[in-house]
Design a protein around this nucleic acid. Structure first.
Length: 551
DNA sequence: ATACAAGGCGCC
DNA sequence: AAAGGGCGCCTTGTAT
């Protein structure tokens, strides 16, 4: 397959076509505004586009109605290769390396207008691509790394397409929801009526007439002055207390949160033309999970999901994986007993059936503790029993924790490496002498060490889970495209992704096909990561008008 | 005026 | 006494 490296030089785009012989590249130069038409033409035959960063190229193509099938996103692949313990770093070394290390995605809406001095323009994607290919070829784990790089790049395309499409959002539904909960929209700087009434009830219950319940400091003082035994003002803490202030205060906090995080100003800022618009950023988290920028797209609360409604004649297909991370752990550790439990639609129930624990609640608590590092209480007490029944799975996370405590790097199944610890406890020779003055006493160092162990313990599972999800997304994207449906605007398309959940916006008549493809893509992802090892990834799939009606 | 930390809470 | 991982983002409160 042809690879075409795109390089921007002023108003001109250079397209370097590589046919496998690195010395015989054929270069085409064309004005930027002719690029979309040229790309569309080239897409008639299989081609992989190689560019510095998808966020710098793809939005303009999508605006012009041009979709590409595959790409290599050098920014993302560089980041993976630079940190992978399976990659020798010397083939990646070049003058440009710090520039690639520091390259940031572009997330402004004005993607057509590049900043005057985009640091990307000083980088040479042709040279970087050669370096990356050399580094990959020299790796003993080139197979799994190649899969990771392909999945990461494919994720970049999905993210750009989702960002372009936006999540269908009914501002009128959202506004009605706000008015029902808070009362009519007040002028700026004034509390909505319902909040003002609740604030009054809180002040009366505490005998604190001037209290601003939005101030945690003031509120804590007032609660303590009224004799409540609390050291913070968290919801969980307040629920433990029996006092007349608790009910109105919890209600106030809930509604104040709705107002500030997803109220009228959120609507004005993030919803335009019936779409919630925010930027999805693949690789935004060290573990490989995505992050999002704008509007808190990765934490859309259940309370406002009724406003996510499919267009007329369309449906939302909402799919999520049940217990992704324990299933991933079963697969990556090759733990046959845990895989057996994972053959059930409910993995935790499968663990009960397998005789490891007595109740589903114990199974869940124990697994969360094993994956997050919980040692306290019931979660910690479950661990020995889990370790007896699922020795390979538990040993994998325990070893990841020990490695982290040593200051070592751990990696995901496909080879994404964890960052090096930065604390003074982890510096070379830290064990040998007295603790440095700036690193506190021994207990502090041990605490930091254990905290890093919990991070690396979770890294291997969360990161491999993110890899499964990337493979799922990538395959689903291809499957959705093959369903057809006419112009890009008439086809089923991904509109949302959150770690283990996707939402597809589809014309009604294709909803059943989309459901089938979402499930098939999950099977593909499992095979890609774990080959023939029998671990299932069952999905909950719902075809709904509104996101709130799923699950 | 602006920047940042803390407290808090939403999502997985 | 501390206590499960990863995020984004809001307001308040303080520092510069």
């Amino acid at each position: 397959m042809d690879r075409i490296v795109l390089r921007r030089r002023g108003d001109v785009v250079e397209a370097w076509r590589c046919t496998g012989d690195a010395t015989a590249a054929e270069v085409t130069r064309l004005p930027s505004d002719e690029l979309p038409g040229w790309v569309r033409e080239r897409e008639r035959t299989p081609v992989r586009w190689v560019w510095d960063d998808t966020t710098r190229w793809y939005p303009a193509l999508l605006d012009a109605g041009v979709r590409v099938e595959r790409c290599t996103d050098l920014r993302l692949t560089h980041a993976v290769l630079r940190r992978s313990p399976f990659v020798d770093q010397w083939p990646l070394a070049g003058e440009d390396t710090p520039g690639w290390d520091d390259l940031q995605p572009v997330t402004t809406a004005e993607h057509a207008l590049f900043p005057l001095a985009d640091p990307a323009d000083r980088l040479d994607p042709v040279a970087e691509h050669d370096r990356q290919q050399a580094a990959l070829a020299a790796s003993a784990e080139r197979g799994r790394l190649a899969l990771l790089l392909a999945a990461e790049s494919s994720g970049a395309l999905v993210a750009a397409e989702m960002t372009h499409a936006g999540l269908p959002w009914r501002a009128d539904v959202h506004e009605r929801l706000l008015t029902d909960a808070l009362g009519p929209r007040p002028p700026a700087g004034v509390r909505p009526p319902v909040l003002e009434r609740l604030a009054g009830e809180v002040r009366a219950a505490l005998g604190a007439p001037g209290l601003n319940p939005d101030s945690a400091v003031e509120l804590l003082r007032a609660l303590q002055a009224a004799g409540l035994p609390v050291d913070d003002t968290r919801q969980w803490t307040l629920e433990q207390v029996d006092h007349a202030v608790v009910a109105p205060l919890l209600e106030y906090k809930k509604l104040a949160r709705l107002l500030s995080a997803h109220g009228w100003s959120w609507l004005e800022t993030w919803v335009r033309d019936g779409r919630f618009r925010s930027a999805f950023l693949p690789g935004g988290v060290v573990t490989g999970r995505w992050s999002a920028q704008g509007g808190g797209a990765l934490s859309v609360p259940v309370a406002v999901r009724p406003a996510a409604v499919a267009d007329d004649g369309w449906q939302l297909v909402v799919a999520d994986v049940a217990q992704l991370e324990p299933r991933v752990l079963a697969g990556m550790s090759g733990d046959a007993a845990m895989a057996e439990a994972a053959r059930s639609a409910d993995l935790y129930q499968g663990m009960v059936a397998g005789g490891a624990v007595a109740t589903r609640a114990e199974a869940k608590l124990g697994m969360l503790g094993a994956m997050y590092g919980g040692t306290r209480g019931e979660s910690g007490r479950m661990l020995p029993r889990l370790a007896r029944r699922y020795p390979r799975a538990i040993e994998l996370v325990e070893e990841a924790a020990r490695a982290g405590e040593r200051g070592a790097v751990v990696s995901t199944l496909l080879g994404r490496g964890s960052p090096l610890p930065t604390g003074a406890w982890a510096q070379r020779g830290a064990d040998l002498g007295e603790p440095p003055d700036d690193d506190g006493p021994r207990e502090d160092r041990d605490r930091a060490r254990r905290a890093w162990g919990r991070f690396t313990r979770n890294f291997v599972v969360q990161g491999t889970g993110a890899e499964w999800a990337l493979c799922w997304l990538a395959d689903l994207r291809n499957r959705l495209w093959r369903l057809g449906g006419g112009t890009p605007a008439q086809r089923p398309h991904l509109v949302f992704f959150l770690h283990d959940e996707v939402v597809v916006h589809t014309p009604e008549h294709l909803a059943a096909d989309v459901t089938r493809e979402v499930r098939a893509a999950a099977v593909t992802a499992g095979r890609l990561l774990f080959g023939g090892f029998p671990v299932d990834f069952p999905l909950d799939v719902a075809v709904v008008r509104s996101w709130a009606d799923a699950g």
